[in-house]
Amino acid sequence: VTTYKLVINGKTLKGETTTKAVDAETAEKAFKQYANDNGVDAVWTYDDATKTFTVTEMV
C-alpha cells in the first residue's frame, strides 16, 4: 500500500489530500470521485516519481 497525493488547482476548490491505495490506478479512481463530488472538472496529470496527481481546472 502506497500513499498518493492529490493537488487541486480549482476555480472554487484548492488544496491537497492524500489516499492510501494498492496502485496508482486505484488512487486515481478515488481522487476522480472526490473531485467529481466537489464539482471539479479539470485536466489531470500524474507524476510517478512523487506519487502525486495534480488536477487543474480550466478557467
Rank of each mutant, 00 (worst) to 15 (best):
T50Y: 03
K11L: 14
N38I: 15
N38A: 13
Y34A: 04
T19M: 14
D41Q: 09
G39Q: 07
N36A: 14
T45W: 07
T19D: 02
K11V: 12
T54W: 11
T52Q: 03
E25F: 10
N38R: 13
T12S: 10
K51G: 02
K29L: 09
T12R: 11
M58C: 13
V55R: 03
K20D: 13
V7N: 03
K29T: 06
E16S: 11
Y46E: 00
D23M: 02
T56Y: 11
A21Y: 05
Q33P: 01
T18P: 01
F53T: 00
T12E: 08
A35K: 03
D41V: 11
V43I: 13
N36C: 12
T12M: 10
Y4V: 03
V43K: 08
N38P: 05
K32G: 02
E16V: 14
D37T: 12
T2D: 10
D41H: 11
Y4S: 02
T52F: 01
K32M: 08
K29R: 12
T45K: 06
A49F: 10
K20L: 14
T18M: 08
T12P: 05
D41T: 09
L6H: 01
E16P: 06
T19F: 14
T56S: 09
D23R: 03
Y4R: 02
E16Q: 10
D47L: 02
K32A: 04
K11N: 09
T52C: 01
G39A: 07
L13D: 06
V59W: 13
A49C: 06
D41N: 12
Q33S: 08
Y4G: 03
G15S: 14
A49D: 10
A27F: 02
T12K: 11
L6T: 01
T52G: 01
N36S: 13
V22R: 11
A42D: 05
F53Y: 04
D41Y: 11
A27T: 00
F53C: 00
K29H: 07
A30V: 14
E57Q: 08
E25M: 10
V1K: 12
L6Y: 01
N9F: 13
F31K: 00
A35F: 15
G10P: 02
K29S: 06
E57L: 12
T17M: 15
T52E: 02
K29I: 10
A30R: 11
W44Y: 02
T45Q: 09
A24Y: 14
Y4Q: 02
G15Q: 13
T18G: 02
T26M: 10
V59R: 09
G15R: 13
T3C: 13
V22F: 09
K51R: 08
T50K: 06
K14N: 10
N36H: 14
T19Y: 13
V40T: 06
Y46Q: 00
D47G: 00
T12D: 09
T52D: 00
